[in-house]
Structures are given as structure tokens and as C-alpha cells.
């Protein structure tokens, strides 16, 4: 009955140590340490400019880190040769952008968007690619009859769900998300959160989720990290960090939102 693998997996999927990136004299992120395990969501919050996107971009390889290591399976991802690193981002990892249009090809059909990532991961058979794409559209609650529509014909919430389908179709182990629910209205957000919770549980995904929304992390994140001026000021169990914050900055952040 308790075959769920998240209990046995005691080694973290990802170990980040000392991750640092500056922009000339300005700090992006500094000496960030974090671990993520399969089947859990790590939330990252902090004021604007605190270094959340810099951190995520360094992890994803969109930005080069100045120092630090990002170890997965005994290997420092930051030191992988470029082709191996790109392969990783195309299959084992997924990055969900805040603006769906940055993560989608807007002039390619919905099915093509999902299929393209499968092909990048090695899939070749057209019929099965199309079937899997249709199945994923269904899983993110997009009518498969719209498989040939372009994302430009979709609402913001649908585009975001399509981006998630595209990212998850290769069954990645790690998903990086920068404000995935920003700019969506509350009911669309709720739908997306519910979907993500189910996928984390069913696929054993590890998720690093950057957001401004304390309500979202309370519902979705198992653990929470608070950043300020590029550094981690507090980290721990999400509800403990939010309900019994120790650091003065965390107290300020929590007190400036209405209770959920």
C-alpha cells in the first residue's frame, strides 16, 4: 500500500552549494545552498530584486554562475559540456517561464509544441507522438480537439497549462518554475495549483517554485526559502516559516499579507 517512492528516496535529487552570481558590482544571488528531493515542492519567496530569478536562471543554465556547484547524480551540472547540459534541459529538467509565450512556440500548433519536446528527447514515431500529445493536453485540461490550434488562440491560463504539458511530457525529474501563476486570475490559478499538486504526487516530481504569492506557497510548497539581497535569510517547513518566522525580514514579509 505504501509503495510511494518518495519515502525511500533519502538522497536529494539536487544539491546546490555556494551558488553565486553578480552583475558587476550588483549582487544577483550569493552563496545559496539548497537541496531538493523527489516528490516535493521547494518554494522561494522574497521581495522584488532579491535574486530569485537569478538563482533559477543559474540553475537552468540560462545564466552563467560565478561560483558554486549544482550536483545531480554525483555530477556538477554547471561543469557539464554544453551538449550534455542542453540534453538535460530538454528531457530530465523542465523550466516553466512566467510568460507562457517565452516557453512556447507561438506559431506552432499546441500538439506541435508538446511533440517538439518529445522529439528533442528522442521520440520519432509520428502517430505515438500525436497520441501522447493529445493525452497530455487532456491531463492539463485542454480539449484534445484543439490539438491543431496555435497557442495564440488560447487564453492565458490555457497557454500556461500548455507550457506545463510541454515541459512535463518527457517525465522530467526536476521542474523549475518562475512565477507560473503570476498574471492569472484567481480561479485559473487555483486550477493550475491543483494540477501541479497532482503531478508532483503522481510523477514524484521535484519542483523549485519562485513566487511572490504567499498563499500559493502555503498551499503548494512543502519547504520554503526566503531570500533577501541575494541571500537565503530563512528556510524550513513552509507552515513553520510562515507562522513562526524567526528573521525580521520574514516577519515583515508575512505580516504584509492578509491571513489566508
Amino acid at each position: 500500500m505504501m509503495e510511494n517512492t518518495q519515502f525511500q528516496d533519502d538522497a536529494p535529487l539536487l544539491k546546490v552549494r555556494g551558488l553565486t552570481r553578480s552583475y558587476w558590482a550588483r549582487t544577483g544571488c550569493a552563496e545559496v545552498d539548497l537541496d531538493v528531493w523527489p516528490g516535493e515542492v521547494l518554494g522561494i519567496v522574497g521581495e522584488s530584486g532579491s535574486g530569485k530569478s537569478t538563482l533559477l536562471s543559474c540553475l537552468a543554465g540560462h545564466l552563467e554562475a560565478d561560483a558554486g556547484s549544482v550536483v545531480q547524480g554525483g555530477e556538477d551540472v554547471l561543469r557539464l559540456p554544453e551538449p550534455a547540459r542542453r540534453r538535460l534541459m530538454r528531457t530530465d529538467w523542465a523550466y516553466i517561464h512566467q510568460h507562457a509565450r517565452d516557453g512556447l512556440r507561438m506559431n506552432v500548433s499546441a500538439g506541435g509544441n508538446v511533440g517538439e519536446r518529445m522529439m528533442a528527447g528522442g521520440a520519432r514515431h509520428y502517430g505515438s507522438i500525436r497520441d501522447t500529445a493529445a493525452d497530455w493536453l487532456q491531463r492539463v485540461e485542454i480539449d484534445p480537439a484543439r490539438i491543431d490550434d496555435r497557442p495564440t488562440a488560447f487564453s492565458g491560463g490555457m497557454q500556461q497549462r500548455l507550457q506545463i504539458a510541454r515541459g512535463l511530457v518527457t517525465a522530467p525529474k526536476l521542474v523549475l518554475m518562475d512565477e507560473p501563476t503570476g498574471g492569472l486570475d484567481v480561479s485559473v490559478q487555483a486550477r493550475l495549483l491543483d494540477l501541479l499538486r497532482g503531478l508532483v504526487r503522481d510523477m514524484g516530481l521535484a519542483v523549485i517554485l519562485v513566487t511572490h504569492d504567499i498563499g500559493v506557497v502555503r498551499l503548494l510548497a512543502d519547504r520554503l526559502m526566503v531570500m533577501r539581497h541575494g541571500r537565503v535569510v530563512e528556510a524550513g517547513l513552509t507552515d513553520r516559516v510562515l507562522d513562526d518566522p524567526q528573521h525580521d525580514y520574514t516577519q515583515l514579509l508575512v505580516s504584509s499579507v492578509l491571513p489566508a
Binding site: M2, V186, S187, A190, R191, L193, D194, R197, R218, L219, L220, A260
Partner: peptide, 16 residues
């Protein structure tokens, strides 16, 4: 698996 809690408040993802 070992510690249950019945809180005074219900905190759930809307729509579930």
C-alpha cells in the same frame, strides 16, 4: 503517517 491534526481553519486549494 503518524501525526494527524484537526485545525480550526480549513486551508485548501480552491476548487478541489
Amino acid at each position: 503517517d503518524r501525526l494527524g491534526y484537526v485545525s480550526q481553519f480549513l486551508r485548501v486549494v480552491p476548487r478541489v
